[in-house]
Nucleic acid binder design. Structure first.
Lengths: 160, 160
DNA sequence: GTACCTGCAAATCTTTTGCACGACA
DNA sequence: TGTCGTGCAAAAGATTTGCAGGTAC
């Protein structure tokens, strides 16, 4: 175990984690090992991780516990999930995900993160015209990244 | 606009179907009964259907055939699929789906279809600033419809 | 000490695949 | 008639759930 401070969960030495623990306790939950470790892994990673990624990173934690934990954390609002393309759901800390949108290349799978403020205008129009409040950015937007667009263009030109 | 599949007397009596059959044959495929029936069901429905919906509507057709058929039709370009919320994928005729985007209420599941032209500005900006070409509208945008927004507001006011 | 968390196994749900037979062109 | 489409069963992948025992508080 690579935690700087050993012992029971009250003093983790990580402000984020203490905050999360407090949040959880205030909602009537405990901060067990699995939950602490899952939060750790999510905090340590930049991108969004699948439940399986998390479980693999934590050999001592069972996948089902990872799922349960992620669901709980999401319920509480500490974690958000995104669907990138057609694979499994991917999770990240809400704090990290805040204000971001994922553009995923259908060809190479590259994940481009863009500020969701790009969508402010659309959001306003949708809210006004359709009375619909666009919400958390749970779904990626599919398309083609530069490289794959060029490649495609080159290919179609070559074939003519 | 949309025309009912009554029309001129051709072999099948359904111009859409004949067209589809021709398209399939030109790509080296046959028009079996499962394929014909799946196309029929999709044409008969306004909204997007799950594979299971289609299979249920066609007691004589096996689910696996429905999946295979839908995948083939999608490959050819006659059908498109959308992910509404977190359930199974939903399929509709490309013709119907053309130029539409789905807004799905996270609370009640209502599916609001809007013109994708709403996103033209965003699309331009994303293409210019991020060199990313936004593609088919395979993923719904989640949020909250009017009714559920009001209900939520009322609830949060009541609880204070 | 009690109630909750967790590991494990098995169930669920969606989608895919291998195989043998029957139908379409 | 030969090939392709289809039904059926089983597999595969993602996620959930029941239960028994350990742990946080």
């Amino acid at each position: 175990m690579s935690e700087p401070s050993a012992g029971k969960g009250t003093e983790s030495g990580r402000p984020d984690l203490d905050e999360a623990a407090a949040r959880m306790r205030s909602e009537g939950h405990r901060m067990g090992q699995a939950r602490r470790q899952v939060l750790d892994v999510l905090a340590a990673h930049e991108g969004a991780l699948s439940a399986d990624d998390v479980a693999t990173a934590l050999p001592g934690v069972h996948v089902s516990s990872v799922y349960r934990t992620l669901n709980l954390l999401e319920e509480i609002g500490l974690v958000t999930h995104v669907h990138l393309a057609h694979g499994p759901a991917r999770y990240e800390l809400s704090e990290t995900a805040q204000g971001t949108r994922h553009l995923v290349c259908e060809v190479c799978g590259r994940d481009v993160v863009v500020p969701s403020s790009l969508f402010d205008e659309v959001r306003r129009r949708v809210e006004h015209d359709y009375r619909f409040v666009m919400d958390a950015d749970h779904f990626a937007i599919l398309g083609r990244c530069t490289a794959c667009t060029e490649r495609r263009r080159a290919a179609s030109q070559a074939s003519e």
